[in-house]
Amino acid sequence: MPEGASPYSKKVMDHFVNPRNMGEIADATVVADVGNPACGDMMRLYLKIENGIIVDAKFKTFGCGAAIATSSMLTEMLKGKSLEEAKSISNQAVAEALDGLPPVKMHCSVMAEEALIKALEQYNQSQEQKPGSFEV
């Protein structure tokens, strides 16, 4: 990264330029879509869950720098976590891990949190049909 001036922290720019876990998971356990193009951002979160552990997380995001960086950071934070641990990841935690976001961009981190909540809900619903399985 060049040292050019940016409205974002170095960490945000790093995750924007070199997003971690960008892509799709072909055999994802859950895929959650949040946001829409009219709002200017949309995130698709893919989780692969095995025995209550998130073994893989990937994303595709249409949106601004903050939206892409928070997507990237969220997937980093999710990988290897138990569902219980994942549940407690807040948008503030994602923003803090990126060394903060401009106030006007905090809603982008909310989108990442919403994607996580939706993915976990979808997972729970899919598990309710399977008696005796792990539930969050």
Partner: peptide, 12 residues
């Protein structure tokens, strides 16, 4: 494609 990410990338 979203405009701000386009601007940011071009700026990089």
């Amino acid at each position: 494609i979203e405009g701000e990410s386009l601007l940011l990338f071009l700026n990089v």
